[in-house]
Design a protein around this nucleic acid. Structure first.
Lengths: 183, 183
DNA sequence: GTCTATATTCCGATAGAC
DNA sequence: GTCTATCGGAATATAGAC
């Protein structure tokens, strides 16, 4: 992995571990055993780094959407929920949740990229649910978009709340979502 | 309101507007037209202020629980959900969500107070749901605690996500929770 | 592309006068 | 309880050598 890619990955981890305003370029330079100035060579400003992290995650999301295109809706939803399981296993929170709380402290470019990432995620989950309902494997009474909002908010906040009330609450929430969706 | 109380309220607003690590004692001194040193007189460290903010919110929660003790479960739940409406109208997020993402950057005392606040909230909502089910005004298939987890995560993350996907999504989520709970 | 060195700003915190 | 003044440290960022 190139230095640039390593910085992006590490920055991503730090945002989801400590928050955007709590990590510094020094945290990154220390871990990668390079100097502060070298990080600035790749990303002149912290916002540049933030934007690249968001673009990277958006790209990963598009890859996942493409890779799962031929799967059935149940598998697709499992792939989506697995994202949160991975994050939980690392003790972190998700990018959208972390940056949404910091929204008023980042510049317009990062805000735009973040909104695009959230919108694309919502669009994908909505599509999965719609497809699942048509194939009679999912059952719910609201619009697909509203159900997607409910599931995403459950998972996003499950990562955060279970840090406080106990890690097993995360898995309780995850399982209940699947149970209630079954046709 | 005493200076001390004003600092607590302003600090609370700033945490939910920008995050704990993004606001400074200067933000507070500027707004209250006092000096940095005066804020430190009331709260020697930032953690002291954070703890007082959490204690204050916990006290307010206990007051609300006490004040609504004689109400029926539907009204109690409405009182709970109204907390989030107030926060949404201010464009902020909730204390639990904001501080949960910053958990790894605050000291053990703040972590403990935050966990106590989250636990008490969960306990109260669980009680409301249990009572509502017994009186046949609420219907749900999980345990009351699990349903409370689902509702709290929906509302907590609705504040955050609707900053990105559109404010009306907050109200969609709120309404759907009530609709699905109706017996 | 990475380094040394440094500029600048900001932040949390404290000493001591009033 | 509030002030002036200041310390020490950390953060973002840049200039210029290698």
């Amino acid at each position: 992995m190139s230095t640039r890619e390593e910085i992006i990955q590490l920055g991503d981890h730090l945002i989801r571990e400590k928050g955007f305003n709590a990590f510094s370029f020094y945290d990154i330079s220390k871990r990668l055993k390079i100097k502060n100035a070298s990080v600035h060579y790749h990303f002149p400003t912290k916002s540049d780094l933030g934007q690249s992290i968001l673009k990277n995650q958006t790209g990963k999301l598009e890859e996942l959407i493409e890779r799962t295109k031929q799967m059935d809706p149940v598998k697709k939803l499992n792939e989506f929920l697995s994202i949160y399981n991975k994050i939980k296993s690392e003790g972190r929170v998700c990018l959208v949740g972390s940056l949404a709380t910091d929204l008023n402290t980042v510049d317009a470019k990062m805000q735009k990229d973040l909104k695009a990432f959230a919108a694309r995620t919502l669009e994908w989950v909505t599509h999965i649910l719609e497809e699942g309902r048509q194939q009679n494997v999912f059952s719910f009474t609201t619009s697909a978009r509203t159900k997607a909002l409910l599931i995403i908010t459950n998972m996003l906040a499950a990562l955060q709340l279970s840090r406080l009330t106990g890690e097993k609450d995360f898995y309780t929430i995850r399982q209940t979502i699947l149970k209630e969706l079954k046709a």
